[in-house]
């Protein structure tokens, strides 16, 4: 584990809501299949499978939230951004500030409601995501990255 910042605590709420979203979506599909079984004689196992998948998926979604939160770290130092995530599938990425081409901040309705923002960091080849930060941090981060990025000679694709 790197000695970085954790995501804001509120991201757990967002994850719970999105897990709830999957549950609703799965139930809708299951309902549709039940309808199809009743009126057009589709197979019953299809309904059962959909229901089982929905339940399992939602349960896993809820269960891993603490782990997901615990293992998500990011660190912005003077010359690089590091992002770390995952327990079962652990990934640690380094992006030197001098390779960053642009930084995008975005927020969907749930994130907006929770006053959070997603940070997308783009290089000439890849895009990296810091799942969510507080607006203050986002602004600060953007400033920091942009000043650092304009301060160094661009040595990416040139």
């Amino acid at each position: 584990m790197i000695k970085g910042d954790a995501l804001p605590e509120k991201i757990k709420v967002v994850w719970r809501i999105s897990a709830l979203g999957t549950l609703i979506f799965g139930l809708l599909i299951t309902g549709g299949l039940l309808f199809a079984q009743h009126f057009w004689g589709w197979w019953q196992w299809l309904v059962l499978a959909a229901l089982a998948l929905t339940v399992v998926y939602t349960l896993i979604g809820f269960a891993i939230i603490p782990y997901r939160y615990r293992y998500w770290r990011y660190r912005i130092s003077t010359d690089s951004v590091e992002i770390e995530s995952g327990f079962f599938f652990h990934v640690l990425t380094a992006i030197p500030i001098s390779r960053i081409q642009n930084v995008t901040l975005e927020a969907g309705p749930i994130l907006q409601w929770q006053h959070l923002q997603t940070v997308n960091i783009e290089t000439a080849a890849t895009t990296h995501k810091i799942e969510s930060v507080l607006p203050v941090t986002a602004e600060q981060l953007k400033e920091q990255i942009m000043t650092l990025a304009t301060g160094v000679v661009d040595d990416d694709t040139d």
């Binding site: 079962f88 652990h90 990934v91 380094a94 390779r99 000439a124 990296h128 990416d156």
Partner: peptide, 13 residues
Amino acid sequence: KPKLQSVSIKQSI
């Protein structure tokens, strides 16, 4: 080194 845009280490459990 200047042409490496990013580097990751991946490790499953």
